[in-house]
């Protein structure tokens, strides 16, 4: 299938890109990896009048640690995360999720920030970022602001970004060495979106007590959802199977899945229960080993 006509610009500087964004307003779309946008254009589900291709902007491809944050620029591809030693040392939740995004070839192009901006409730990264208490950086010609991940996605395919803003970075706080995380996902095949997935994170103190926790759900709510009630339950406790079962119950209760070809709501809820329990157990193992 073939996309409709559009204007195209490939700015070489951030200022130029932001200028175009503020000038052209509504019918402009940012083109990052293109792995969601181009298929939609080919199917004629999207027909932007203009694309601003950000792939030639300098300085946005880095994964770096500074000021207590792990920072991912707008052009960090899914596979950059999967191949990063820094990520695998610092953020096991991200490392666990990366291989399950799309497929290996799509991962060479698709970006983490693009996935967040796309705000597909079936997308994986938003849950990872929710579980890790991430923030995104929105930049426009008039300045820059930081948006906590939990306020970023406002509705299905809708974010807090303004039309003139570019998402330039997503960053997650780096915890101490005793951190563990996991991403449990059920896909029918490589390249499938998750039927249900659960991102988990546990930070332990010296005594093995839980001092930080993150749980977030993919594909089972109208948007990616952070299970704050379960996180609160875990924090301050000594980890135990019973505790994880209780957290899993809360997660299952929080989910509001729909019946569809991927299965009935009750099934998905049960998978959330199983995955939360398994994910917390794996996170604990990694944290204890850390």
């Amino acid at each position: 299938m073939y996309p409709p006509k559009f204007d195209y610009a490939a700015p070489r500087s951030l200022d130029e890109a932001l200028g175009l964004l503020s000038d052209r307003g509504e019918d402009v779309k940012v083109l990052a990896g293109g792995q969601s946008l181009i298929p939609m254009m080919k199917l004629r589900l999207a027909s932007p009048a203009m694309l601003i291709d950000i792939n030639r902007l300098p300085g946005l491809s880095e994964i770096a640690e500074s000021d207590g944050y792990l920072r991912l620029g707008a052009l960090v591809r899914h596979n950059d995360v999967g191949n990063s030693d820094l990520v695998s040392r610092r953020n096991p939740t991200m490392a666990a999720a990366a291989p399950w995004i799309a497929d290996p070839i799509v991962r060479n192009r698709g970006t983490v920030c693009g996935a967040l901006a796309h705000a597909d409730p079936l997308g994986d990264w938003a849950s990872v970022m929710l579980a890790c208490d991430a923030e995104v950086v929105a930049t426009s010609a008039s300045g820059q602001r930081t948006i906590p991940m939990r306020d970023f996605i406002t509705d299905v395919f809708t974010t807090a970004l303004r039309e003139d803003e570019l998402l330039t970075e997503v960053r997650v706080p780096v915890s101490g060495s005793r951190t563990g995380g996991d991403y449990q996902t059920l896909e029918r095949k490589v390249g499938d979106y998750a039927t249900a997935a659960v991102a988990t994170r546990l930070d332990l103190d010296e005594d093995g007590r839980i001092v930080g926790a993150g749980i977030a759900l993919t594909s089972v709510c109208s948007i990616n959802t952070k299970v704050t009630e379960a996180e609160a339950l875990l924090i301050g406790q000594q980890p135990s199977t019973e505790l994880f079962v209780e957290a899993a119950e809360i997660a299952a209760r929080t989910a509001t899945p729909q019946d569809d070809v991927r299965g009935p709501a009750e099934y998905k809820r049960d998978v959330v229960r199983v995955f939360t329990r398994r994910g917390l157990a794996t996170s604990l193992e990694l944290a204890q080993a850390g």
């Binding site: 497929d103 029918r188 095949k189 490589v190 390249g191 499938d192 979106y193 070809v261």
Partner: peptide
């Protein structure tokens, strides 16, 4: 029709 493209009509990869 549910199964009108390769996102819905699933064909196994080498992995499965």
């Amino acid at each position: 029709c549910i199964g009108s493209n390769f996102m819905d009509y699933l064909i196994p990869t080498a992995y499965e």
